[in-house]
Design a protein around this nucleic acid. Structure first.
Length: 402
RNA sequence: GCAGGGUUAGUGAAGCGGUCAAACACAGCAGACUGUAAAUCUGCCCUCUACGAGUUCGGAGGUUCGAAUCCUCCACCCUGCA
């Protein structure tokens, strides 16, 4: 366990919900939870400078071991003085283990992370299987140059240790909803074995690098949509000396709340819980209600780069011709830099003209919107009005869509 | 004036007797994106009373069972020679 890392719970709601507020303390600052963690996969939040990231009140950034290992190489980041100094972000950081890529590069490709249960996968291109899992690790081919590589739990720890984020994730195997139950059991066993190896490797790294022993390590809970597997793995990993837990894996969207509850009922209450890869408002409410403290997601920036912006009435598409001469901000009364200074007509023009500032302005607004949503939820928990906020907010956000 | 080349849907550009409402690209229209191979991807894009029908491939006429594709004339554009 990391000595520099701690978590304290401030408020809990009770009354059938696990929602709570708290503070995560890291060597690079604190995170007030629940918190939305911005994703900066390749040591950059796409299209945003760190000043902008601070400007949208992001508390922490999550980067990725797989991507940084391939490019520019984790040794370079270590030589640069670590992730914080390399990317000029002085706040708390996370790194994901690269376990996700095992699957996203493998045969399941998009299907695994598709939380709709497979209804939107038709749009994604088919790719050949490019990653192979065995009990010891994963062999895969770089998406950049096709070179063959191999990840093991030990290597993932070494990479993340070199990158130097405050919070690291154990190397796990993400399964697909299509994988049969028997395979889920095998994969879960591997994730357990790998968790042990991650802990052992971290001990070694902390001992061999006395000056750099601050990093916390979170385990990842898998088990797809099976309650028995989710509970079993949560109970098992919950007994190990991890600093916190990430809930990941293939999930049917409708079951998000249930799945998180199964996990959190078994995991140690006083450890921080991170939900990997969600940011749809209804998912955020569901996750927080079931005791999630932090989450991360690429969606606000990705969706923004492709034209979608958040409003209280749902997502809208700035590329639409109806915004050609719409001189309102993206969202009335929004406190973000974009909305305080630019109109829909201007951003529409930037997108039509393929001007890169559009990507930045949209990313700012979307990150700000989701972060503010989570901040508002945190406030509501403290004020005892969580249920009220959730009901009103979700009603307004989703009512128009039908 | 002579010789040759060209004129295709919003634009550019394939097609050179049937499988052509016509490839492809761009523009246009709409949509999707949840631990980022994603400034990406998908669908639509002649007209309509739309799983069918009707008009198209500079204009007019002709050959043929059948033409954007062959022939004749006309219009305009380009390149050589004068």
């Amino acid at each position: 366990m990391s000595k520099a890392f701690s978590f304290s719970i401030t408020t809990k709601i009770g009354g059938g919900t696990l929602a709570r507020t708290g503070t995560i303390t890291t060597p690079h600052g604190t995170i007030q939870t629940p918190a939305f963690i911005v994703v900066g996969t390749k040591a950059t939040v796409k299209a945003m400078t760190p000043e902008m990231v601070r400007g949208v009140h992001a508390q922490a950034v999550l980067a990725n071991a797989y991507h940084l290992y391939l490019q520019p190489g984790h040794k370079l980041i270590e030589n640069a003085g670590g992730l914080h100094s390399f990317m000029n972000w002085q706040g708390p950081t996370f790194t994901d283990s690269g376990g996700f890529q095992v699957l996203s590069l493998g045969s399941g490709f998009k299907k695994v992370i598709d939380m709709t249960g497979g209804t939107t996968v038709q749009n994604t291109p088919k790719r050949e299987r490019r990653a192979f899992v065995d009990d010891d690790g994963v062999t895969f081919y770089s998406h950049i140059d096709g070179n063959k590589h191999r990840f093991t739990p030990e290597l993932s720890m070494q990479i993340q240790h070199a990158i130097g984020a405050d919070i690291m994730f154990a190397f796990d195997e993400l399964t697909s909803l299509q994988d049969p139950y028997d395979y889920q059991i095998d994969a879960l066993q591997r994730t357990h074995d790998w968790a042990d190896r991650c802990l052992a490797e971290m001990d070694e790294l902390r001992t061999s690098h006395p000056g750099r022993d601050y990093q916390a390590l979170f385990a990842v809970i898998q088990g797809a949509q099976y309650e028995d597997l989710r509970r079993k793995t949560s109970k098992h990993l919950g007994q190990l000396p991890f600093d916190g837990y990430g809930i990941g894996g293939a999930i049917e969207k409708e079951k998000i709340g249930d799945i998180i509850r199964w996990c959190n009922e078994e995991l140690p209450y006083d450890k921080p819980k991170h939900m990997l890869g969600i940011s749809e408002p209804n998912d955020i409410f569901a996750a927080i209600e079931q005791g999630i403290d932090t989450f991360d997601c690429v969606s606000p920036t990705r969706v923004g780069r492709n034209g979608a912006f958040y409003t209280y009435e749902g997502r809208k598409n700035i590329k639409g011709s109806r915004y050609y001469d719409d001189f309102q901000p993206l969202l009335d009364d929004c406190n973000c830099y974009t909305c305080k200074n630019y109109t829909r007509a201007y951003i529409h023009h930037l997108f039509k003209a393929k001007e890169i500032l559009g990507l930045t302005l949209m990313s700012i607004h979307n990150e700000n919107f989701i972060i503010k949503l989570v901040d508002d939820i945190r406030t509501s928990i403290e004020a005892g009005s969580f249920n009220e906020l959730r009901n009103n907010w979700l009603h307004q956000y989703y009512s128009d869509k039908n």
